[in-house]
């Protein structure tokens, strides 16, 4: 059997007396769209930062794309894509310059950079704005470009931290088209979101409450388990926001 692409066992992060992530365990398979849900302050961002090699765990085990989060954090960073809500594009560079800049950082050859740039611009319909600065583009275009740039180097996994905040409903769905396509092509997608309809688009979701994973399954099983019709209701039943 194929090894899980993300593996976590009793993964824990403490800040002083406060346990932000409390012994979480899960396995994610190749090509899965995995929704990582939880209320504000439940520990999602902390968990994600450990998985992408930015923060060392306090205890527990985890590997991402086959690399250990303690010893091989640099290798993890090379093998993943990452996009956050405050996307990483340079506002005062043009569309083409941004693509080329990131392709260069990812170590693509000149030939690869050329073909990737042409391909991306065509696919996203950005031909007319290829030499426009990012700051002049609508939010939705930026998000789609930021996602495409995040998977420019064909990573095994892409981490998306609330990628669709604030965009219009049509653009939000176009964005999910890109996610489906990436997953269809074998890229594992690890995504956090506050839109519960998007939770339904995931193959499996986990719900974090006060640092622990309190539920993990595919959306239809979770809905059955809680005897409700939507993931929104599952979430509201599960996730008590942590106050004070």
């Amino acid at each position: 059997m194929e090894e899980p692409i993300i593996y976590a066992k009793d993964l824990t992060k403490k800040f002083g007396d406060f346990t932000a992530v409390d012994a979480i365990s899960f396995e994610i398979n190749r090509g899965e769209i995995f929704g990582f849900l939880g209320a504000n302050g439940a520990g999602k961002t902390t968990a994600m930062k450990m998985l992408i090699g930015l923060w060392k765990p306090t205890s527990g085990k985890a590997s991402v794309a086959g690399f250990d989060v303690y010893r091989e954090a640099e290798k993890i960073k090379k093998n993943i894509g990452y996009m956050s809500q405050r996307f990483s594009l340079y506002e005062d560079l043009t569309v083409v310059e941004n693509i080329q800049f990131y392709a260069g950082i990812y170590g693509l050859t000149n030939q690869q950079i050329k073909s990737k740039t042409t391909g991306l611009i065509e696919k996203l319909g950005l031909l007319e704005v290829r030499d426009s600065r990012i700051q002049s583009l609508p939010l939705g275009w930026k998000q789609k470009l930021a996602f495409s740039v995040a998977i420019l180097h064909d990573p095994k996994i892409v981490f998306l931290d609330e990628p669709t905040g604030g965009v219009d409903p049509i653009t939000r769905r176009q964005f999910w088209d890109l996610i489906y396509e990436a997953a269809h092509n074998g890229i594992t997608v690890f995504v956090t979101t506050h839109y519960m309809d998007e939770a339904e688009y995931c193959d499996r979701v986990s719900i974090m409450v006060n640092g622990r994973i309190e539920a993990l399954d595919n959306p239809s099983t979770l809905k059955k388990q809680f005897n409700v019709d939507t993931m929104h209701e599952v979430f509201v039943k599960m996730a008590r926001p942590q106050e004070a």
């Binding site: 939880g38 209320a39 504000n40 439940a42 519960m196 509201v236 008590r240």
Partner: peptide, 11 residues
């Protein structure tokens, strides 16, 4: 309520 989770939004 932007960026706020569904439970806090309800509240």
């Amino acid at each position: 309520t932007t960026g706020v989770d569904p439970v806090s939004r309800n509240e």
